[in-house]
Design a protein around this nucleic acid. Structure first.
Lengths: 147, 147
DNA sequence: TTAATAAAAGATTAAATACTCTTAAATCTT
DNA sequence: AAGATTTAAGAGTATTTAATCTTTTATTAA
């Protein structure tokens, strides 16, 4: 099951990276993020651009420029990030891809799948970027593969 | 969230279609299935071919040939079908796509996601093709969009 | 004010997935 | 045995997603 697109994977990883070093004042350059996380610079630029447009990040051009969080990481939920990175319809859609699946004409696993997605939405709406980045700082989570 | 590939969607739909008419003796032609379900004939042929190779279906060439279930639909689970149509690793894989996610180095939602996939596996291992096709027969599920 | 730095934006390329077409081989009917 | 029907197999095309390259614009520091 492909839960997330590369877009979302890279976006989340970058956000955790940025939030993990919120001690440091100033901006983090996209170039540095892309090198540290081993993500294509240009691809990452686009992803962070949409996060900037959605006011998760703030950007600054010129020397010493880069990106920084636009709000406190405690205020940013995983659900919010997913909606931006994957689209609003991320938790909609029939599991089986059956035509016209809905309350009137549910697919065989309609109710079961709705329960699953509800559980996920509930969990992710209470999971903040702060929590995620804390796990990075504590070393519980690694953002790059060890070579 | 894209739960299933078109491969799996078409495969499941065809299996439900075939199982729903298990009264009729003999084989159902792939041409007819593709027309009734509005799926590309050649594409469907390939999908059913792999189901035949995995002994879910049995095939017969020549006039009055086609495909038929190779075992009782009560013996075929949704989990089994998913593994064939999507691959054995369908329920593996890190939700966040984080490198080296596992028990030693779990991603931030590792345990949560594992619980979700376990719930799904449990449910799908007790959901049989017979149940699914019964819902088609009762009209609870529609296999094609109404025009 | 000039050079360096860095994001923004859009065009282009590459890879994966979804789908189609062609040919071959098997099987049945007459 | 001949011809029609149907699956089998693989090559080929199209679309989508992922990644890269190029140019432009803003900003800062010397």
């Amino acid at each position: 099951m492909k839960a997330l697109s590369m877009n979302a994977v890279y976006g989340l990883r970058a956000l955790m990276y940025i939030a993990a070093q919120r001690e440091q004042e100033g901006y983090v350059s996209i170039r540095k993020i892309s090198e540290d996380l081993d993500i294509s610079f240009h691809f990452l630029t686009k992803i962070l651009q949409t996060l900037t447009q959605h006011h998760i990040l703030h950007s600054q051009r010129g020397p010493a420029g880069g990106v920084a969080l636009d709000k406190a990481p405690e205020q940013v939920t995983l659900l919010e990030m997913l909606y931006i990175l994957e689209g609003e319809g991320y938790f909609s859609g029939c599991f089986m891809g059956l035509p016209g699946c809905g309350e009137q004409q549910p697919c065989p696993v309609h109710d079961f799948w709705r329960q699953i997605t509800l559980t996920m939405k509930e969990k992710f709406s209470h999971t903040t970027l702060a929590e995620l980045s804390d796990k990075v700082r504590s070393g519980e989570v690694r953002l790059v593969s060890c070579t």
